[in-house]
Amino acid sequence: MKVTRREFLMLSGQAGAYLALSSCMGIDTKPVKEYVEDLKKIDKLKTAKQTTSLCYYCSVTCGLICSTDPKTGKIFNIEGDPDHPISEGALCAKGAAMLQTTELNEHRLTKVLYRAPYSDKWEPKPLDWAMMEIAKKVKALRDKDFILKNAKGQEVNRLESLAHMGSSKLDNEECWAITTMMRSLGLVQLDHQARV
């Protein structure tokens, strides 16, 4: 039975077709049957909602297919997208580990570590708290240092006391959103970890 990926996707609900095929051939494949029955992942793949995405680890930006379980609404598998013109389904070790960035990864950090000024201790704090603290500091600094006009009296609307450091984990769209937001705050120093 030769099936292309697209045809295969349409074969949903045919779980066990392989087993039926083996048993009608009169071959004793009992251990193999047990093995296949144990594996639910391939069956889940048949009914999964597929969403394309991109690997953000390097500038090649390989294509990904994220499979979401329609019952739980959670991603359970991520692999290369064979239809992607650049990567044609391939992924290196970093892209192949993309599933680790989902909540399936029990080792993923869910809290931030905060060290107060002059303190020598790290304290675990909720992410929401950290976001709010950063927002407060940005607001305070912008209110204090925002420059409306330069020495010549020209309108500049800039903030020189704050810089933004980007990351190679950002994809193109995230970079766009961040740049737009930072420019609207008046930031002129936007840089990237790869340059420092």
């Binding site: 039975m1 990926r5 295969f8 296949v36 391939i42 793949l45 692999e79 389904g89 290196c92």
Partner: peptide, 21 residues
């Protein structure tokens, strides 16, 4: 397992699929 579950369902093994070169 040669990804028996995959190859029995018209997919190629996970390792082969990922190979960029």
């Amino acid at each position: 397992t040669m990804c028996l579950d995959r190859i029995s369902n018209g997919q190629i093994p996970a390792c082969v699929k990922s190979c960029p070169t």
